[in-house]
């Protein structure tokens, strides 16, 4: 009974800021913008945004896969460092996250720009500058950069729980280093992998601003589209709500799939 009273503020918070907005999104998504009657036309209208939606999912998948490929060995290496060094490396990893991500993305604009840092170096050595900014690669790079720590941290936290003697036992029984990773580390890290994938995929699929900044507004993602439906030129909260709803369903389905693998340690 007492714990319920303590939890009350959270319930109120959740109702006001989570449940009510969700219901509103649901209502708007099925409401005709002129008559206010029930309609599915908003959802049907989304079909014209299908390429954007698919592109968003594709970019998010690429981001997640690359983050996993980069993050897994990084997390493993950090988890095997002496303890004092672990905290230093983790600190370095977290440090950029204290700076607003828009600022960090601006930094990337400067680095990748036609006259930016990399191209100046190339030109210094007499090489031709490369067009990097305003490409899909730049957008994905920005997404990877911003999301990588969210892959490394859950992987790291699960890997520190793997007892050194379990790894030694595997070697003792005939595992080469690659077999140790395949047969012991990866199976034991699955809850972390599942959490990491969720924590990277969900923000990636709904990301906005990054794509606009790094593609010079040439590549639209679903997040940018939703923003425009509410705040931008294409003001139409009804279609925006429908888009949000579809995105939410996609995310929920994917989280649901990964929780199947994640066991009790997974998020959500």
């Amino acid at each position: 009974m007492k714990s319920r009273i303590i939890a009350l503020p959270y319930y109120v918070w959740m109702v006001i800021f989570t449940l009510v907005p969700l219901i509103l999104v649901g209502i708007f998504a099925f409401t005709d913008s002129e008559t206010g009657a029930f309609t599915v036309s908003n959802l049907l209208e989304i079909s014209k945004y299908l390429p954007t939606l698919l592109r968003s999912v594709l970019y998010a998948v690429v981001t997640t896969v690359v983050c996993l490929i980069l993050g897994f060995p990084a997390a493993y290496i950090i988890s095997r460092l002496p303890e004092e060094k672990q905290s230093t490396v983790l600190m370095l990893l977290m440090l950029p996250m204290w700076i607003n991500f828009i600022l960090r993305t601006y930094a990337w604009m400067n680095i990748l720009d036609a006259n930016g840092f990399i191209n100046q170096i190339l030109m210094f050595f007499g090489l031709k500058p490369i067009k990097m900014l305003n490409t899909s690669a730049a957008v994905i790079l920005g997404m990877i950069y911003n999301n990588l720590p969210f892959m490394i941290l859950p992987l790291y936290s699960i890997m520190t729980k793997i007892d050194k003697s379990v790894i030694e036992a595997a070697q003792d029984l005939g595992c080469s280093d690659s077999n140790v990773i395949r047969k012991v580390i990866i199976p034991l890290a699955i809850p972390g992998i599942s959490t990491g994938i969720t924590m990277v995929f969900v923000p990636s699929v709904s990301t906005f601003i990054i794509s606009r900044m790094l593609s010079g507004s040439t590549i639209g993602l679903i997040g940018d589209l939703i923003e425009q439906e509410f705040l931008g030129l294409n003001y139409d909260p009804y279609v925006g709500s429908a888009l949000s709803l579809v995105l939410m369903v996609i995310v929920l389905v994917i989280i649901g799939i990964f929780n199947q693998f994640g066991g009790e340690d997974a998020v959500v």
Partner: peptide
Amino acid sequence: PAYKRNINTVFQKYALFP
């Protein structure tokens, strides 16, 4: 390396694969 030795170990805290 350990994995090529014809020696096996019983560990103090068992070290079984969970």
